[in-house]
Design a protein around this nucleic acid. Structure first.
Lengths: 220, 220
DNA sequence: ACCTGAACACCGTTCAAGT
DNA sequence: ACCTGAACACCGTTCAAGT
C-alpha cells in the first residue's frame, strides 16, 4: 500500500510523530513504527542508532518554530511568557508531547535555540548568567510539568470520571479540608486558566529576583 | 537463601524499593522483583493488581513522613519551603525517586497529606482555594522536575563527561552566546544551590500573588 | 487464601546475509 | 548504502492447577 520509498531520517521522524499521535508514547514501538514505514523491523536502526536517539529527535522536531516565532522589540516580561506559551503549544501539538521531554537531555538545535532565546531574554532583564540559566530551568520545568499533567488528564478513560471518583473516595473532609475546598480546581476543568495562573506566578518570581523592574515603556 | 515467608503487601513494597535502588526504575521489572522476593513471577500479582498499582504505592511510600515532620507555629513562608525541601529529600532517598512521580496520578494517603499540608499553608497565607491549589501545583511541579534532572545527572555514565562533551559540541558561541556564558551552570555542579535558587523564585512568585505580605513576626 | 508453572502476546537490539 | 530475516534476551499479564 505504501510506495516502497527509500527511507530518510526526515521521513522516519515524520512517520514516528504520526504514530505517536495514533498510539501514544507507550504504543510507539520500533516494530509499530517500522510497520507504518512499510519496512522490516530492523530497518529503522540503520537511520537511528536507538529508540532513545529517535525520541530525542522527535522531541527536538516539536520545538521547530518555538524560538523563531517571537516578535522583536518587545519588553522581556512580554516575550518570556510568549515563549512559554509557544513551548506549551508545541508540546500540545502531539499526543504525549510533554512526556517526550520528561527526563530527557538533548542538546539538539531547536532545544538549544529555545534555551538561548529564553536565557537571552532573562539576561536582557538584567539577570546574571547563572540566575538567567536557573530561572530558565524553573520556567521550563513548569511548562513541561504542567502540559504533562494536562495531556495525562486529557488521555484519561471515561473523560476522567473514574479518576475523579477515585480522588473523591480518597478525600476525607475531616483530614483534608483544604483539598476538599479546592476539589473542583484539582481536576482542573480549565487548563488554560490553570497554565496562565502558574505562568504568572513564575514570572512574578523572576521579576522579584530581577535587579530592575522595567515597565513595557522603559524597554521600548 | 530467603526464608520462604508468606508475602504481605508491606513486604513486597519494601523489597520493591530495594530493587529500585539496585536496578533503577528501568531495571525494576515484575520478574526481577519476584526473584528478589523468592517467589515465582506470577505471585506478585496476587498482592498488586498491576505494575502501575505497585509503582503508585511505592511513590506514596516515599512520602511517608514529608507532611508530618513540619514544625508548628511558624509562618507560612518558612513552612512552605520546609515542605518543599522535605519533598526533595524524600524523592532523593531512592534511586529514580522523582521519576516515580512523573506523570502519575495517585490519591493515596501520604500524597494527599502532602497536598493538604501545602494547600493549607497557602490558604493560611491568604490565598483563595483555587490560587492555593494552583500555586501548590506550580511548587510541586518545580520540586519533582528539579529532582528528576538532578537524579538523571547523577546517574549519567562517566560522571556526565560524555553528556558535557555533547553539550559543548552542540554549543556554538556565535549562535548561543548566552548559553555559552551560562555553560558552567547548565551542567549544575551545585544541585543544592540550583534547587534553592528556583525554590526562592517560586516562593517569591507565591508571595507576589498573596494578598498580604506577613513577616515572620506578624505570623507568630 | 496464596502461590506455581506455563503460556500469550509482545518488546529493543543485533547482525549475517542479501541487493 | 540500505534493508531483510531471523534470532537473542527479555517484558507485563493471565490463569488453570496445585496446596
Amino acid at each position: 500500500m505504501e510506495a516502497p520509498v527509500r527511507l530518510t531520517r526526515e521521513h522516519v521522524l515524520a512517520v514516528a510523530l504520526d504514530v505517536l499521535d495514533e498510539a501514544g508514547l507507550d504504543g510507539l514501538t520500533m516494530r509499530r513504527l517500522s510497520a507504518a514505514l512499510g519496512v522490516e523491523n530492523g530497518a529503522t536502526y540503520w537511520h537511528f542508532r536507538s529508540k532513545q536517539e529517535l525520541l530525542e529527535h522527535m522531541a527536538d522536531a516539536l520545538l521547530a518554530e518555538v524560538a523563531t516565532e517571537l516578535p522583536a522589540d518587545r519588553p522581556w516580561d512580554e516575550l518570556v511568557p510568549a515563549l512559554a506559551r509557544g513551548l506549551r503549544r508545541a508540546l500540545l501539538s502531539r499526543r504525549d508531547g510533554a512526556r517526550l521531554f520528561s527526563g530527557r537531555f538533548f542538546p539538539l538545535p531547536n532545544a538549544l535555540a529555545y534555551g538561548e532565546a529564553l536565557v537571552g531574554l532573562l539576561a536582557a532583564a538584567g539577570l546574571d548568567p547563572r540566575s538567567a540559566a536557573w530561572a530558565s530551568d524553573a520556567l521550563t520545568y513548569y511548562v513541561v510539568a504542567h502540559v504533562t499533567e494536562e495531556q495525562l488528564a486529557a488521555a484519561l478513560p471515561d473523560g476522567g470520571d473514574a479518576a475523579r471518583a477515585r480522588l473523591e473516595a480518597g478525600l476525607d473532609p475531616a483530614r483534608h479540608p483544604h483539598l476538599v475546598a479546592a476539589r473542583a480546581d484539582l481536576a482542573s476543568a480549565d487548563p488554560d486558566a490553570h497554565f496562565e495562573h502558574g505562568l504568572a506566578l513564575v514570572l512574578a518570581g523572576i521579576r522579584a529576583t530581577a535587579p530592575q523592574q522595567p515597565t513595557s515603556r522603559a524597554a521600548r
